[in-house]
Design a protein around this nucleic acid. Structure first.
Length: 271
DNA sequence: ACTGGCTCCTGAGGGC
DNA sequence: TGCCCTCAGGAGCCAG
């Protein structure tokens, strides 16, 4: 499951191979992703040079001379650079063929991902326009969370996973961050003090940065390499560990559904 | 304005 | 061994 650290790691790995290269063609084998891949993509992109590969939330922004392509990996998507002539495998839905004979190939078995055209002003695209701050950027901190949470009755964990509050936090990282912060995921967001929100913001940052470092080491090379997600290298404290002992105090971890998502926490360490 | 529930899809894992 | 069922998950979208 690509979460923010994986997407950022992918961006860093791929950017040097893409920036400055020209796109020769787009090959679409499966148009039906989360939204249909736009029909005119190949026509728009043919001959355009890649200017940058950026990231906003879990979206990759491939900026070209012609405009920007939005890529989302959903929960099973991955990108790699392959020789353009290499026969595609199952679930490899799309190629951005480069003029240097290689192709950026998207594989996405569950097809929750997306490839969209965002034109000249991608920041104005509806999918990006309403997004909250980057969790590793300067605008994410306890005060921000405290302010947005005022009066909200929703539980802390789904609140943290709301992209209007902060982007890029999936179920795993939200779960782990709340363990690190010592906050019960079921607690109503509006009931947390500023001090506790500061701890949450710090924990979010710590968990993501740790995963980013891990991802950077395991996902160094995107040319033909098969990526392992950043959290793979990290020991998960509570996520998916129902009934197992808390790594800090030994109490049995509890799991329950919270806003359609399974949540795990230590009943003793998290209040 | 919020909140919760639904949806897309496939592969993994459990039960028998 | 194999089949069937259930579930997980990102996040937009909609109904109440």
């Amino acid at each position: 499951m690509p979460e923010l650290p994986e997407v950022e790691t992918a961006r860093r790995g791929l950017a040097p191979h893409l920036v400055g290269r020209r796109i020769a063609a787009v090959r679409v084998r499966q148009r039906r992703l989360r939204w249909p891949v736009p029909a005119g993509l190949g026509r728009r992109l043919a001959g355009a040079a890649v200017e940058a590969l950026e990231r906003r939330a879990k979206y990759l922004l491939l900026r070209t001379e012609a405009g920007t392509v939005l890529l989302h990996l959903g929960m099973s998507g991955s990108l790699r650079l392959v020789p353009a002539a290499l026969p595609p495998e199952r679930h490899e839905h799309l190629d951005l063929v480069l003029e240097d004979g290689r192709a950026l190939r998207l594989r996405d078995p569950r097809r929750f991902g997306a490839v969209l055209w965002a034109g000249r002003r991608p920041e104005a695209h509806p999918l990006l326009a309403g997004l909250g701050p980057e969790p590793l950027g300067p605008h994410f901190h306890g005060e921000h969370l405290h302010r947005l949470a005022r009066g909200r009755r929703v539980a802390v964990k789904p609140f943290l996973m709301d992209a209007r509050v902060v982007v890029g936090l999936g179920n795993i990282y939200a779960t782990e961050a709340l363990f690190l912060a010592g906050v019960d995921p079921r607690r109503p967001a509006g009931k947390l003090s500023l001090g506790r929100w500061r701890r949450v913001a710090e924990a979010v940052r710590a968990v993501l940065e740790q995963a980013l470092v891990a991802g950077g080491t395991t996902l160094r090379d995107f040319v033909g390499a098969d990526g392992r997600p950043g959290w793979f290298a990290r020991e998960l404290a509570v996520y998916g560990r129902a009934g197992q002992p808390c790594p800090r105090c030994g109490t049995a971890i509890r799991c329950a559904r919270l806003g359609q998502r399974s949540s795990c926490w230590c009943p003793r360490c998290q209040r």
